[in-house]
Design a protein around this nucleic acid. Structure first.
Length: 199
DNA sequence: CACCAGGAATGTA
DNA sequence: TACATTCATGGT
């Protein structure tokens, strides 16, 4: 067993099943609506505490705007204010909503080529590597490993690698794990839980 | 009151 | 390629 697999075993044993938001993000299978909620959450959580994102999602839900279609019909800017950066995030949400609709909906994206989809997502304003990969892995069940600030901190702390660049770490994790979207979902969730846990 | 959270775009050198 | 700055709210 390599270092990455050992790390997973360690975290899985320590934390068990992911809770909180992760109970939705790691749910299998997900409904279309749940997948859309994950996409929206992936934008809202950019550099933002999940606690604030929850408020924004709750507001969207109450206003019946928590879906790709309904997103476009409400006063999103007011609703998502608690998640911060609300003006840009409003634009970003419209961008991704338009993209999903023009692609034929989430169900179409489920059968799309991962590489091609990733390239197209990265062309959208407001979608960088982490958000693209969160959407691919958590919303669309694609076998792509998400790298974030917690992953980098943990890799550094565990002295697994000195190179902390996004692409390098993503390849490192994916090369040392079986290609399994569900494993990737759980593992990344555990990394974040571990990071929050020891602060 | 200061700091920062599961990023990304933009500008500068 | 490598940094610095900006975007904004709410928790600690």
């Amino acid at each position: 067993m390599n270092k990455i697999e050992k790390l997973y075993q360690k975290l899985a044993k320590k934390h068990g099943k992911p809770a909180d938001q992760w109970s939705l993000w790691c749910k299998r299978p997900k409904t279309i609506n749940e997948r859309e909620e994950v996409i929206i959450g992936a934008i809202l959580t950019q550099n933002t505490n999940w606690n604030n994102v929850k408020k924004a999602i709750e507001n969207l839900k109450k206003a019946n705007c928590l879906s790709i279609q309904d997103l476009c019909s409400g006063n999103i800017e007011e609703l998502i204010k608690p998640s911060g950066f609300y003006r840009q995030k409003t634009k970003y949400l419209f961008e991704i909503a338009k993209f999903v609709i023009q692609s034929g909906g989430v169900e179409k994206l489920l059968s799309a080529s991962t590489d091609e989809l990733r390239t197209n997502l990265l062309k959208l304003k407001g979608i960088g590597p982490e958000t693209a990969d969160s959407i691919l892995n958590y919303a669309l069940d694609k076998p792509i490993f998400v790298i974030d600030a917690y992953t980098k901190r943990l890799v550094e702390a565990e002295k697994i690698s000195a190179n902390l660049s996004y692409n390098y770490l993503q390849k490192l994790f994916m090369d040392n794990l079986p290609t399994d979207y569900a494993l990737f979902q759980d593992f990344h969730a555990l990394i974040v839980i571990e990071g929050k846990n020891k602060k």
